[in-house]
Design a protein around this nucleic acid. Sequence first.
DNA 1: CGTATACGAGACACACTGTATCGGAAACGT
DNA 2: ACGTTTCCGATACAGTGTGTCTCGTATACG
Lengths: 197, 197
Amino acid sequence: MPRLWSETIDAHRREVRDAILDTTARLAAEHGVLSVTMSQIAERTGIGRATLYKYFPDVEAILFAWHERQIASHLELLAQVRDQADDAGTRLEAVLKAYAMIHHQRVRHHQHKHHGAELASFLHQDKHIAAAQQQVHSMISELLTAVADAGDLRDDVPPHELATYCLHALDAASTLPSKAAVGRLVTVVLTALRPRP
Amino acid sequence: MPRLWSETIDAHRREVRDAILDTTARLAAEHGVLSVTMSQIAERTGIGRATLYKYFPDVEAILFAWHERQIASHLELLAQVRDQADDAGTRLEAVLKAYAMIHHQRVRHHQHKHHGAELASFLHQDKHIAAAQQQVHSMISELLTAVADAGDLRDDVPPHELATYCLHALDAASTLPSKAAVGRLVTVVLTALRPRP
DNA sequence: CGTATACGAGACACACTGTATCGGAAACGT
DNA sequence: ACGTTTCCGATACAGTGTGTCTCGTATACG
């Protein structure tokens, strides 16, 4: 008797898939990414090992899917935050702060789980990972361009480079101990974006 | 007949150890970290598998040792750069630029090798990795404090937080395509460090 | 020159992998 | 409602990596 059974078969597959991703993330956080095995994942998820292979071909694919799901949820949150403000400058600040808080919370919430960015290097194809993360980069890049159109952005560096700068700099939030420190980080990052006097 | 044999036995062990680290880094870059095995490492290094186990207990330990060696060489280079200048501000700028170039070169030189920071999350004990990376953090932190003493640093954020900011922001160099872009990145990062007007 | 150390090779039990097959149970479509 | 399709858990299997051990040999050490 399968643990979770939904009305529709498609919904069931989605639930099982999500459960696999959750289990894998938990195992990776507990014992390290390198020691996670398909057997463990199947057992802890409560499904047969052969069934697991019908969802994913190997551990790497699962980690990749987990990373994609993380990025997607981040994107959704960031879009919400962005659409709550009208002014370009306000939008940028709100989104950057939200991005920083996401990374801050992840590390405080789970024990010392890896960021997506860090996980990226594990997988063989950085390119594919980059594709997911690049959606976030695009969003920030567009926000920066909007600010530039308002004349409130430095013009000696192209917006897409500034976006790369922002994303990496804000990853520092994962190391910081307090929300106050994260707030200061966002302030520092924003400082560098203003037009040269 | 062992491939490399040195006069002293201790030098020999160091050479073998380094060869193991080189091989492992190469394999990880070629086929992804997750697929690296002790058997492969032994074969490609040209030593017996049992011998490999006398140097390292598992793949994770080798990756950790490789990471430590990387950080140590970075620290050495950064210290050289630092000691070539006298003025605190000049020192900071030179070291930050060198740090950025290290990360830039690594990604351009090898195909898409992982940064240390990214590799860190793979291993179970982030704490130990953090210890190695923290030496770099300390160096930057000291440089920032020296600049602060000269009155050329913003005083609304403590130097150790600014150091965290710098290190993460400069990691963006690994994504940038050209040396010119890296130069602009360093400029941007430095912008945020100046005293509030 | 005797001793201690490091080595390669091989053997071993164990775990994980990837694939295949099977009968049963649930959803699907008419 | 009922036949069909789809998914599932269990089991089996060969192939590979793991971690440990022993043994005979070669080298450095004192």
